[in-house]
Amino acid sequence: MSSLSTPHLLGIKDLSPEDIGQIFSVADNFKEVINRPIKKVPSLRDITIANLFFENSTRTKLSFELAEKRLSADVINFSSSSSSVSKGETLIDTVNNILAMKVDMVVMRHPKPGAPHFLSRHVDAVIVNAGDGTHEHPTQALLDAYSIRENLGSVSGKKVVIIGDILHSRVALSNIFCLQKIGAEVMVCGPATLIPKHIAELGVQVSHNLREALNWCDVANVLRIQLERQEMAYFPSLREYTMMFGIDKRLLESLKKEITVMHPGPVNRGVEIASDAADSGQSIILKQVENGVAVRMAVLYLLAGKIERKG
């Protein structure tokens, strides 16, 4: 079994362009598999995967669970909307308790940046980061890039703008790393209060003008406004946000060319994107969801190559 250059998937930062290429080509195979009448392969038989979600998630959790089941892994789920720390148990203890049940892989979402890195240093299991606070969300970035590749033929040389709350977004950061590694140009666009001050040092362009950004790009990746992640008001009202940064069909049609529209979900319809744009022919939002399963299958399959079955 071929495998990745890293033992865990903690972030896109640790992946090489070859790793990303390998994930995409394995995902191509799995995409074919999940469109067959019998959608299940035995690749991860006898591998136990724990999905630990210390933060609310619907689609990422479902997508991982489906990917695991399609690979015939044994799956256990643990969800806690508030971090276990609030109950006085440390993260290491929580995870070690679960690992004592002989789990091989941990898929973890956690509200704190670096939590999966911390875990990877202290517990003996393969760790897959399913989103760590405002840091990274590597599988989302991989499925986004995979969807661009599928829709436009390649990622290299394409211009991608990420729109919205960049400051609180792990999706933005992982997307920037991933797209740059495979040759795309990246711009971020949003209100100045929601753009990290030093983001340009990552080699991305910065814009506060939505029309200008959309006219520049081939692909617009529209982020969800994460009201729950904002400890203070970075803009006065949703209404005003929509006035400046909301995308609707009329705006898309007034552009110089037809662009591809993406959204990692869940969509706040009428806030960052209007229904007529989200459901238009330019939108690949639901394809992203389908590709998410194939890409996550590829990641799990490639990482499982490192696992020695525990006796």
């Binding site: 990290p196 040092e201 203070m232």
Partner: peptide, 21 residues
């Protein structure tokens, strides 16, 4: 510095941590 964790700069941006300017 609401919830600032480290120096605000390239490193904090890479780590997704809140910066202390």
């Amino acid at each position: 510095v609401p919830n600032g964790q480290m120096n605000e700069g390239l490193q904090s941006t890479l780590l997704g941590l809140k910066g202390i300017p």
